[in-house]
């Protein structure tokens, strides 16, 4: 059987069909074309597929696609303001935190959600916000620096 759902992604309304067992990550990537949402572990462990769903960061690989009916989603594609990058995006580039870049969308989304909650996150809050995002390239050092830089620029 196939379902039809309507949802909002980055301010744009979509109506599309999906199989009931489809994970949200696959629906976003394969049906709606949001390829910035990265597929990786399929178990909710690496954070590459992180999106903001109704204001909260979630792993879209372990969310049922059907649960997005009526939801308001933000993906990495919806974070820059036109051509103007969000401070977190710019900071990732400036500090060298983007190596292969595959984990980057998940980090950007998790950190955007954090900085939406608080402009001056504590070290504990930063750690909590991105412990669920695995980066295999950087050893996290440059990511720490990127978060600091972005927070400074936003405050």
């Amino acid at each position: 059987m196939s379902l039809e759902i309507t949802l909002t992604v980055n301010g744009k309304t979509h109506t599309a069909a999906l199989e009931p067992s489809t994970a949200l990550v696959d629906f976003l990537r394969d049906t709606l074309g949001y390829k910035g949402v990265k597929l990786c572990c399929n178990t909710g462990e690496c954070g590459a597929c992180t999106i903001i769903m109704d204001g909260k960061p979630v792993n879209s690989c372990v969310v049922l696609g059907a649960d997005a009916a009526g939801a308001d989603l933000v993906t990495v594609e919806g974070i820059a303001d036109g051509d103007a990058l969000h401070p977190v995006q710019q900071a990732f580039i400036d500090t060298g935190a983007v190596q292969c870049g595959y984990c980057t969308p998940g980090f950007i989304v998790s950190l955007k959600a954090l900085l939406d909650r608080t402009k001056n996150p504590t070290a504990e809050e930063v750690e909590e916000a991105i412990s669920g995002n695995i980066c295999r390239c950087t050893g996290y050092t440059k990511i720490y620096e990127a978060v600091d830089l972005a927070a400074k620029q936003m405050s």
Binding site: G44, G47, T50, K56, V58, E128, G132, N133
Partner: peptide
């Protein structure tokens, strides 16, 4: 309990 993303779900 796991990551913030999981705790939200």
């Amino acid at each position: 309990f796991a990551s913030l993303q999981i705790r939200n779900t």
